[in-house]
Amino acid sequence: MLGKVLAIILGLSALVAGGAMYYLQVYGFYEEVAPQPGRDVVLLPLDGSEPRPIAYDDFQAIDADSSPIRYRACFTTDLTRQDLAAEFTPSKQTVPRNAPGWFDCFDAEALGAALEEGTATAFVSVKNISYGVDRIVAITDQGQGFVWHDMNDCGKQTYDGTSVVEGACPERDE
């Protein structure tokens, strides 16, 4: 009898722990980001000068302190990606990271397909927004905009354990 009771307690504990881990990963750490007009959506000019804001509406964003790559945002814009490409730096990072299912406006699969088909363009927003992480902005032909954080070359080298070439990456904040 004692074995059955212990098995039930162990099983219930595993279910509670599993449910808590799921909740924390999908919902728990995320917070809505308060819009900061003129600062939410910026793009890096081709000349490499300071990122400049672009016109946007309907901004929604989420972020989490637990990881620098959890930031996701959506917005709309009247600017065309072709006009933006004439002024701003395109990004080589064109595979958006998935967002939690409850953040409805960010569909990474559809955005990835649009980037692959050429109906969307990804731009560099801010380099090293966090050490080894760049902010990427993508604009579609329909005027939908998406923002996510992705590891740059320094971040990939740092976090996968390969040695970082001296001078190739910015100084790391302590």
Rank of each mutant, 00 (worst) to 15 (best):
G3R: 14
K4V: 13
L6E: 00
L10V: 06
S13M: 04
A17G: 03
G19V: 02
Y23H: 03
Q25G: 14
Q25I: 12
Q36F: 14
Q36C: 13
P37F: 08
V42M: 01
V42K: 05
L43R: 06
L46C: 01
G48F: 02
R52P: 00
D57T: 15
D65H: 13
S66T: 15
S67H: 11
P68G: 04
T77D: 05
D78K: 15
T80R: 08
R81K: 10
L84R: 01
L84A: 12
A86P: 02
S91N: 10
S91Y: 00
S91Q: 09
R97K: 14
G101R: 11
W102R: 05
D104L: 15
D107S: 08
A108H: 11
G112C: 08
A113W: 03
A113T: 11
L115P: 05
E117C: 07
A122P: 09
F123G: 02
V124Q: 15
V124F: 13
G132W: 06
G132E: 05
V133P: 02
I136K: 00
I136F: 00
V137F: 05
F146A: 06
F146I: 05
V147G: 15
M151N: 13
G155I: 14
G155S: 09
Q157I: 08
E166Q: 10
G167S: 03
D173G: 12
